[in-house]
Design a protein around this nucleic acid. Structure first.
Lengths: 150, 150
DNA sequence: CGTGCGACTGAGACTTTGTCTCAGGGGTTC
DNA sequence: GAACCCCTGAGACAAAGTCTCAGTCGCACG
């Protein structure tokens, strides 16, 4: 992610904190910066590794809590996938995912037709939809090649 | 799920086992039956609770393994959601999910327009898509009511 | 610039979720 | 019914996530 985008994202975070009355701490800022630097879809533990390498005093619990709170105010999102660990996503604009069912890789996809998809009416469920995501499940190139050779 | 559908699903399972050369064991049958009886989207541990209540000798590891193997041969599926535990889904036909970001509830949705969505071309990623799912993320009725009163 | 409130943090214990090992058992095939 | 091979149970282990609580720090206010 380029420097400017990153700066803009950090400003958004500052603003949301002010609006929400949330204290803006060094640790949460470190977690956000790590997320913006990692553009795959890291697990909480991987984010912790990165943050801890820069400042070893940041504890695992804090990273878990920070990621949750960042996701709650919408500065980052949680990616959905069928693996066991939660994956976080620094992109917040609408986009979709290729999910490899073998290795749990998540690959970003943008597709105009998918983006143009109308959100169905879910009011009969009492459900308020904030976001529509399409998940394309399958097998990635590397895993297919591995299966073929075996 | 009605008795007939359930019987048909069990027959499908028997056939796939024969075709795949997989032994058809009592334990896996018990896991499948539990899945067909639970029509929410249970975690592996919840399935184990149900199976163990009927036959306390079935171990946790076996339930985990059985769910994995049932998913692998396509008799059940894994639901994708942002929570920490894998959720299994007894429905295998195309359908979509409302996912509550607060309580992790998963609600089935069918919508013709969503079903008619063409699978985008992902060959440039070397990715072979087997399944397209739409996930509508938001907040369910109960969680909204809880947040309003607080 | 102090002060006070309240939310945040670190450390580690704890819980939950999932995997592995290995000896023994049970399906399937012939 | 015998052989083969995968499956199973039990529990140890590993990975992922939560909780507790005393102490700290951000921020609003004066």
């Amino acid at each position: 992610m380029d420097r400017q985008t990153k700066q803009r994202r950090i400003e958004t975070y500052r603003r949301r904190c002010r609006e929400g009355g949330l204290p803006l701490t060094e640790q949460r800022m470190a977690v956000l910066e790590a997320m913006l630097d990692l553009d795959d879809h890291p697990t909480a533990d991987r984010v912790h590794d990165v943050v801890a390498r820069r400042d070893s005093r940041v504890s695992r619990a804090t990273v878990y809590r920070a990621l949750e709170s960042l996701a709650r105010i919408g500065v980052i999102t949680k990616a959905c996938h069928p693996g066991k660990a939660v994956r976080y996503d620094s992109r917040t604009e609408t986009h979709h995912h290729l999910v490899c069912l073998r290795c749990d890789a998540i690959i970003d996809v943008t597709d105009d037709r998918l983006d143009a998809l109308p959100v169905p009416d879910t009011s009969s469920y009492g459900f308020v939809v904030s976001d529509l995501r399409v998940q394309l499940r399958g097998v990635c190139r590397r895993c297919r090649e591995l299966e073929e050779t075996s």
